[in-house]
Design a protein around this nucleic acid. Structure first.
Lengths: 198, 198
DNA sequence: GGTAACTCAAACAGCACTGTTCGACTAATG
DNA sequence: CATTAGTCGAACAGTGCTGTTTGAGTTACC
């Protein structure tokens, strides 16, 4: 029943209501039960199972949708200019998204095979990889370590920062500046001066 | 019964056997049951409950011991020289420890309140904070962002890197060089050149 | 060698959850 | 307005844990 094709209007409405409720519940408690989610969606548990065959399938759908939305938001960015400028742009948009859906990621990590999570991260990861490669060709980013790892580190810092904000140890307002500062420095080739904030 | 004081030799032996088995089981499966752990320790489940009142208490003991050992290992380092050199030293020792006990952290995150995990991280965190502060005073590290967040980012990158190694996407041999390169760059004050590897 | 500390298997109670089945009911659709 | 897709609550079966009890058996220790 997952296809949006030719289904009744209320069914489609319920399906998205369930996804929305799942986001809310799982963000509050990564171990939220199917019953919790169904109730929050204003729907019977049986109905939920009519839409998603298992808890795992629901989790997958929730997380996949979140990643799809995130990727779509990033897609509207123009990252073709100066690589450093582009990275600032990417950070400014990304950190908020990561921050908002951080709790969801925790839920996904508990209930989804880690390979699947990796798979769903593929597109955003690929985006930063391309940017890094372009920056390297122009001599603006360092070339002495693997691109894949640099990308991982990029998102690692983003996630860590989101955690710090959630924990109340970092002010939201300081996040973008701190992130761009540290990440631009991290990517600067050895010998070149660390860029100053402007 | 957790006190090591005046207990019978076999009791103490069993207690550590349980902790050792727990490390092994939880590293393999973060959701390993108490029964699994008892069996791996060659001990009845009842005996385990004689030593640790609940699964959570066991988890706490396991994780606390791991952190205590990690901190002790770091304690033997001389971090009083040049801050940059000291950081290289700290990274070289830390990344392996983080890499080895990464799986354990996952288990802890599922079964322990996150405040407790934070608490048990306090000492290593404090160590890097002190180092950063000292490097700042000497003008070698950047002063334009909060120390607490810089420390968090430091460990964030370490953890991310450990994940990449576990996933087989980064060669162990490349880790120390990559880590020191990126972290030294990240901490370099704006305007100063990024240090070259030597 | 006696005693107290410790261990053990088996069995039990309890819980919380997942996923299914039923039959009755309700509302979108054409 | 009839048909069919969808919904609902209640109840059930099944699972896999956690934590406890019991009573008999070992083993360290003085």
């Amino acid at each position: 029943m997952p296809g949006t094709r030719g289904r009744r209007a209320d069914a489609r409405r319920n399906a998205t209501a369930i996804l929305d409720a799942a986001v809310e519940c799982l963000s509050r408690d990564p171990d939220a039960s199917v019953a919790d989610i169904a109730q929050a969606a204003g729907v019977g548990r049986v109905t939920l199972y009519g839409h998603f065959a298992s808890r795992e399938e629901l989790l997958d759908a929730v997380f996949a949708r979140a990643m799809r939305e995130a990727d779509a938001a990033l897609d509207s960015l123009d990252l073709e200019g100066d690589p450093r400028q582009a990275m600032v742009l990417l950070i400014r948009s990304s950190w908020r998204i990561v921050d908002r859906s951080r709790a969801l990621l925790v839920a996904a990590e508990r209930g989804l095979p880690h390979g699947r999570i990796r798979e769903l991260h593929q597109r955003p990861l690929h985006r930063i990889e391309r940017l890094i490669e372009r920056g390297r060709e122009q001599g603006e980013f360092r070339t002495d370590m693997p691109v894949a790892w640099l990308s991982a580190a990029f998102y690692g810092v983003l996630h860590t920062t989101a955690d710090e904000i959630t924990a109340g140890r970092l002010d939201e307002a300081d996040a973008p500046g701190a992130l761009t500062g540290i990440l631009l420095a991290a990517f600067t080739p050895p010998g070149q001066p660390v860029p100053t904030a402007d």
